[in-house]
Nucleic acid binder design. Structure first.
Lengths: 142, 142
DNA sequence: TGTTGACCCTCCCATGATGGGAAGGTGCAG
DNA sequence: CTGCACCTTCCCATCATGGGAGGGTCAACA
């Protein structure tokens, strides 16, 4: 199976499959005489695992851990659960920060008539620093 | 005022001040004979505006727009409000996506005893694709 | 006056995960 | 045998930010 077919079957782009190989997230694929990478069911299985973990927002490094635990017959489900709970907390923290920013801005926007005059509480707040809440550092939205 | 003091006063790091200058978000700072950048109250005001906009999650390009509107005496508050509302929608969309991921994972985690045995619904779900919701991904035929 | 330590300058590089594209080889169908 | 779709590697870009090297400037203190 060529990389393009593996990509379609797994939902991971060919670019990403090569990248995952380059960083050692997946083992080097077998090669044909032509140099083309060759994939089998086991590889697809692993790629599918990775894609689903990415869909859940896991970082590459955390997926690396999950893959280790996946192939470890003796691992405890407590280890997996701990990673998952940590990740859940991070996801919710980020969601909260984004929502806080949205809420702050919504308050400002509500105070702005948007009637075409120049007066604008949004701009004024940015100008003089009267934003409703500024929790410590910059929450890095990206 | 040196860049370090401007950084402390505005809450924008010196690195970032130079970067903002390099991309034209702030005009080139005045220079002393030594080559040191020199900042005054007007510059601090602008940097503070940028920092507060960043705190609200605005991207650099959108801040560029806001700065233009800020210095435009004739601009309509409707223009500002439109940018703000667009941004609010994006923030809330991202927050929703993160929260969805967290919810999916929380469902899985709740099904995992974490009692030290190897059985783990979390890993199994990643393995066979039985995650509760996979928004955007294909159902992965196997 | 000389030294020292804190600042500043410009460059280059790294991040994380992904895509784009160029230059060139391979495989298959017409 | 030709053409097209696919594969290969390598480099570059993103977005906002930080780290650091190598070298210049400034102010305080002995």
């Amino acid at each position: 199976m060529n990389i393009g077919q593996a990509a379609q079957a797994s939902g991971v782009s060919a670019k990403m499959i090569r990248y995952y190989e380059s960083i050692g997230l997946v083992p080097p694929a077998g090669r044909r005489e032509s140099g083309y990478r060759d994939y089998g069911p086991v590889d697809l299985h692993r790629l599918g695992f990775i894609r689903r973990a990415r869909d859940l927002g896991f970082s590459i490094e955390r997926i690396r851990l999950l893959l280790e635990l996946w192939s470890d017959q003796d691992r405890s489900n407590a280890e997996v659960k701990a990673i998952a709970l940590t990740h859940i907390n991070e996801l919710e923290e980020r969601a909260r920060q984004l929502q806080e920013m949205a809420d702050s801005l919504r308050t400002l926007a509500a105070a702005c008539d948007g009637d075409g005059r120049p007066d604008c509480p949004i701009i004024e707040s940015l100008e003089i620093g009267g934003a409703p809440h500024c929790h410590g550092g910059r929450p890095t939205p990206h």
